[in-house]
């Protein structure tokens, strides 16, 4: 659960986004611009966080008044191996080293629900992390690195699967379904698409991240819609709009379900429970 430093919305003096060209970072940057928040957008073209020199570069770029959103990661999906894992850990180590030299005002780390296993289908902030993939282990390790090595007030936001225009990934779910429709006029489900998942719209993710910055929030929050749909339900929604055909392919993995208990998001304050 998050605790809020500012009960009322207080824009950060400057918002620094590490990973500003990614799916989430770009969406946050767009919304921050709409809200006229002063931003510094950094992508791998500006600072290669995997390189050791990133520490000095960040120290030069950051100020103690900054609020930093760390959403940079190398994501190769399920094919991510130990090499990608080590690069991602290196990025966190370099960010951590920089923040030990220049303590910014606030750090928001964008993590993932992949830190949770599938032993329990209803996830809350009290669910113990138990990553089943290197990708999940990477996010959990980064959370711990940032929480233990820096003294910066930290919010960890664990994102469920997100969808929306501009997604660079091709993970099984709404974005891939749209791509399949666009390219082949069909959607391929594994098995019957029974798996239940929570899907969050990227603009809602950006809004929630900005709320976290504007309230100086610290702690842990899962970002999820709170209502799960099966992949078949999602596919049928898309098919109904496009006329695409739904086909099935043999299942590769056992059926798993994931739901979120979003009570913690409803608790803390008005901004996290309201959408108009």
């Amino acid at each position: 659960m998050l605790k809020h430093l500012h009960p009322n919305s207080t824009p950060p003096e400057r918002l620094v986004i590490l990973g500003a060209s990614g799916f989430v970072g770009k969406s946050v940057a767009t919304m921050a611009a709409q809200e006229k928040i002063n931003t510094l957008l950094l992508s791998s073209r500006d600072v290669d966080l995997t390189a050791a020199k990133a520490v000095d570069q960040l120290v030069d770029l950051l100020t103690p008044q900054d609020s930093v959103i760390f959403c940079a990661a190398i994501d190769k999906g399920s094919s991510s191996g130990s090499e990608i894992f080590m690069q991602n850990i290196a990025m966190a180590r370099h960010v951590s080293a920089a923040l030990q030299r220049i303590a910014v005002k606030h750090l928001i780390y964008i993590s993932s629900d992949s830190v949770y296993g599938f032993e329990t289908s209803l996830i809350s902030e009290k669910t113990p992390p138990c990553p089943a993939s290197l990708y999940g282990a990477m996010h959990r390790a980064r959370e711990i690195i940032l929480a233990t090595e820096t003294k910066v007030p930290l919010a960890v936001l664990r994102l469920t699967g997100i969808y929306g225009a501009g997604d660079t990934h091709n993970a099984y779910g709404p974005n891939r379904f749209w791509r399949e429709v666009k390219e082949h006029s069909k959607i391929i489900l594994f098995g019957e698409g029974e798996e239940m998942r929570d899907h969050l719209y990227v603009a809602d993710v950006a809004w929630l991240i900005l709320q976290t910055t504007q309230h100086g929030s610290t702690g842990l929050l899962n970002l999820a819609a709170g209502g799960s749909l099966s992949f078949r339900q999602v596919a049928e929604m898309i098919a109904a709009q496009t006329g695409a055909v739904i086909q099935t392919a043999p299942r590769r993995q056992p059926i798993t379900h994931r739901h979120f208990d979003i009570t913690a998001r409803l608790m803390p304050s008005r901004p996290f429970s309201r959408k108009y």
Partner: peptide
């Protein structure tokens, strides 16, 4: 978890 039921219903 069950204590959160009223809040979830309000949400």
């Amino acid at each position: 978890y069950r204590k959160g039921w009223p809040l979830r219903m309000l949400g």
